[in-house]
């Protein structure tokens, strides 16, 4: 029997056991501390990255023009600024909607985002249709799907008349969910 095999077969000396325990403890300690440190830095970092998802964005009414500017039976583009744009947002802070005046009282503000994949639909005043430039979705003047891939009618933004001004409520980009 060689010395090696003797060593392996003999019961471990107390010192060896102690070293093994010590090593195990130090492993747990190091990995544990490492995980703690990673969490200490990582969790706030993840929080920072996902903040835009959880943060509540205020919604405010934005005036888009005096009532008499809009003729009954017509649809026109109106633009407004997002609720609280970042100072460096530039033109990206702007949003558009298609505003239809149905009667003396009734206004409808359609989102410009096609419900298929979000491309900006265009109003064709003569054809009285909204057309999407991406995959050819078409909507009627009331926002209902006329043809093509869109699964839902054009979403509407809340709209009201205050002090002679038509106002649209700033809203999230409508996302078609399943």
């Amino acid at each position: 029997m060689s010395t090696d095999t003797q060593l392996r077969n003999s019961p471990p000396a107390r010192e060896t056991l102690e070293i093994a325990t010590r090593r195990r403890f130090l492993t747990v300690l190091s990995v544990g501390l490492g995980t703690f440190a990673a969490g200490l830095v990582g969790i706030p970092l993840i929080g920072f990255l996902i903040a835009p998802v959880v943060e509540k964005v205020p919604r405010i009414w934005r005036p888009v023009g005096p009532v008499e500017q809009f003729k009954i039976g017509t649809t026109v583009e109106v633009t407004f600024v997002d609720a609280s744009p970042l100072p460096w947002a530039g033109v990206t802070a702007r949003t558009a909607a298609w505003l239809r005046r149905n009667s003396e009282e009734e206004f409808i503000a359609f989102s410009v985002d096609c419900t298929h994949l979000g491309c900006p639909v265009r109003w064709l005043p003569d054809a009285e249709l909204f057309l999407c430039p991406c995959h050819g979705g078409v909507y009627y003047e009331n926002g209902k799907v006329a043809s093509g891939p869109p699964p839902k009618p054009l979403p509407r933004y809340p709209v009201r008349v205050r002090d002679g001004q038509v106002e649209v409520l700033t809203s999230p980009v409508p996302i078609t969910t399943t």
Partner: peptide, 8 residues
């Protein structure tokens, strides 16, 4: 989108 609309 980093928010509920395209922006800064």
């Amino acid at each position: 989108l980093a928010g509920d609309t395209v922006g800064g």
